[in-house]
Design a protein around this nucleic acid. Structure first.
Lengths: 350, 350
DNA sequence: CTGAAAGCGCTTACAG
DNA sequence: CTGAAAGCGCTTACAG
């Protein structure tokens, strides 16, 4: 037996297809009595509404696209969950894909989403997206788009993300208060505006205290624990142990802490460590990790709202919803003092 | 100016719509020369293929649905990434949703996916899915479905997941080799078959060694670090400190380790701790966590393949791809011995 | 290699 | 409150 369609229901009820269509849409033009009868028949016959067909007519798909680099990093996971929840509540379903920070994958995903006529797209742009990369979203009618977490120079769109410069600055001021003398910044993708901004804010604050900071383009990497671990081992082996290691993200910091322990040093005493994001893991590190909260959940909710607003009114002016970061100081830096006898321990052992 | 459609391209090229449609499908029935000309015109006019319209005709959506409980847990994140990659390579795009382990949310997601005519669905069933819950997937023509990670009693479908009984047994045998005397099992959702199976395998092995195990229905919880932390605090405060705490998952174990540290005990010495999944975090714990690997990435790849096979041939018999677990012993249990003077330390301090 | 025609399952004015 | 008709953008035999 073939699939049950609207026409079958109409015939079974002795109504026109139009009438049944109105029932599906819960139109006030149909009596409650009729609606009840039709719905009963639908259930009995196992009718399944075909949104694709409906959308062809209405020109809305009730689907929204979401592209992030990956979802292993808890920051992105949090972000994704928040977006899904908000869009789900608004009746949308989410087409999702991961770019792995590769522009070619991102392009393929954008194509697929545009071809599926998503009503809008939320995009965390790959770190080195070429300028023309998002052209497809701009084309004929344009797909409403909001950017998250990373801005795209020269691409005017709704945006939401944390104030990364401020985030860097907050951490820099904290480091000044520790009277540290040297800071190494580790991890984060080369061309990410988020990395640039965090570094910039940090540099600004440290400069006020005359504190040394590693060059911006040094220690670039994907934002993973494995990379944090590798870089930190290299750093410590090279003999250039700084007072403070600032990781691009908590994910990177996890690896930093591990490498520090592995090298027989005590994080928070021999070397201070801090990260960005303040995802759940930060609290559970040993020692608990000082981190600048970047509020992925709020960012996601905000992004979804911006997108819904733009779908509602494509002509509205572009909006940037900038989220304020917050510093959470924990043991990985709290008790650190640069003049603590940090070489003594190993000296005594020798 | 309104959207460019196939007809516009046909007119611009002096061809029929059918001909242009064949170009889109890269049919051998059209000369390469013509294809090149048509594609050039498409690019110039900014044509975007409408898959929704095409699908209405072809009755395939090239969309697959994926429903997992959440994506904060690295196990699910890994799983999700692997599935996406495999499906993407096969030309599918993914509609995704999170059930939060709530059957009502799961139902809504399944409805949405069926209505969008997904070609198939991969489902990690909510722990307490009612039996009739997946009826929609069964209806008229039926949507090809594969279940992952948790089986559903009385629901016959393709399935892939780790052998959880074996996983529990592996850990149980290891615990026997430590000569531990008591084990507490903490965390995991009440009605999850994965939890039941892990517990069962563990119980079986421990029984052989005459080792005490906490009752199955005790310490049930969502699979999060926060819950692991809370339960462990309760456990330690109650004075019933076991030799070994086995966490339902590494996520739970993260919280367990934190609570143990917080209570002034040393994991791996005063109390042994182990988890399941062996996600990346396990290595980075302090001490590194003994964990039974459940291979989410392989599970995801496998699930995608099963689904593609079923889409290809809806009549094929149901298949179960069971993945073999592997125990990875690390410091959280490796050096533990129950007779080590674990009360001595505090005694000496007192 | 190409064109005319029918149809996928729905919605939307429009007339009643 | 209801019905007949047109149409959303594509594809698929079929005949040439």
């Amino acid at each position: 037996m073939s699939r049950v369609i609207l026409k079958d229901i109409a015939e079974a009820c002795g109504l026109s297809r139009a009438a049944v269509s109105l029932v599906v849409q819960d139109s006030p033009r149909v009596s409650e009595q009729t609606k009840a009868r039709v719905r009963k028949v639908m259930a009995e016959m196992g009718y399944v509404y075909d949104r694709g067909a409906a959308n062809l007519r209405t020109r809305r798909s009730m689907i929204v696209g979401l592209i992030v680099t990956n979802v292993r990093n808890p920051y992105f996971a949090e972000l994704t969950m928040a977006i899904e929840q908000e869009l789900q509540d608004a009746g949308y379903t989410m087409l999702q894909g991961y770019s792995y920070d590769e522009p070619s994958r991102q392009d393929r995903l954008i194509s697929a989403m545009v071809e599926h006529r998503t009503d809008g797209v939320i995009l965390l742009p790959a770190a080195d997206s070429p300028a023309g990369s998002l052209q497809m979203l701009r084309s004929p009618q344009g797909t409403p788009t909001v950017l998250i977490a990373r801005q795209l120079r020269g691409y005017d769109a709704d945006y939401t993300g944390v104030d990364n410069v401020k985030a860097g600055e907050l951490l820099g001021e904290h480091i000044r208060s520790l009277e540290a003398r040297s800071v190494t910044f580790v991890g984060g993708p080369a061309k990410s505006t988020a990395r640039d901004d965090r570094y910039r804010g940090l540099a600004r604050a440290l400069k006020r205290g005359g504190i040394t900071l590693s060059p911006r383009s040094q220690h670039v990497s994907p934002s993973t624990a494995m990379d944090g671990e590798r870089i930190t081992h290299e750093l410590l082996r090279s003999g250039n142990q700084p007072d403070v290691i600032v990781a691009y993200s908590d994910a990177v910091a996890t690896g930093v802490l591990h490498a520090v322990r592995d090298s027989g040093l005590k994080a928070g005493a021999d070397v201070a460590v801090a990260g960005f994001d303040d995802v759940a893991d930060a609290r559970y590190e040993s020692p608990p990790l000082t981190s600048v909260a970047t509020f992925p959940s709020e960012t996601g909710t905000q992004a979804a709202r911006l997108l819904l607003a733009r779908i509602d009114d494509p002509q509205r002016p572009c909006e940037s919803a900038i989220i304020a970061p917050r510093l959470n100081v924990r043991d990985s830096t709290a008790g650190f003092r640069p003049n603590a006898p940090r070489r003594l321990a190993s000296g005594a052992t020798a």
